[in-house]
């Protein structure tokens, strides 16, 4: 069972309290009704499936109930860092070689 740091509670809590909520940093267009089929396809259907660093959304379901973003390594399952929803994709990751 993983320990995940909730950026709102500022605490590491067991995985049981959390739910994964899919890939992060996929913005919903402010003019979604006017999007082309291709743009909507990219927005709704296309997801990355990297071996290594992934940016994803989690929800502290059985804690503060907030959605937040996390950087996780899909090879080691280790959480590199977590940050609040709405914050930009981190430019630098702690302890990860480029």
């Amino acid at each position: 069972m993983l320990l995940i740091r909730c950026p709102y509670c500022e605490e590491e809590r067991p995985e049981l309290e959390f739910r994964n909520a899919g890939e992060a940093h996929i913005a919903r267009s402010a003019n979604i009704a006017g999007e082309s089929d291709d743009d909507f396809e990219k927005f709704f259907f296309i997801r990355s499936n990297p071996k290594g660093i992934i940016y994803e959304r989690w929800r502290h379901m059985h804690g503060c109930a907030r959605f937040f973003n996390a950087v996780r390594d899909t090879v080691t399952d280790k959480f590199v860092m977590t940050y609040k929803a709405g914050e930009p994709k981190p430019a630098k990751l702690p302890g990860v070689a480029k």
Binding site: R19, A21, R28, R57, R59, M61, R66, F67, A85, G86
Partner: peptide, 13 residues
């Protein structure tokens, strides 16, 4: 409830 919270917190904050 989860669906509503998701949109409220992340798309329409």
């Amino acid at each position: 409830m989860n669906h509503m919270e998701d949109y409220l917190q992340t798309e329409f904050p």
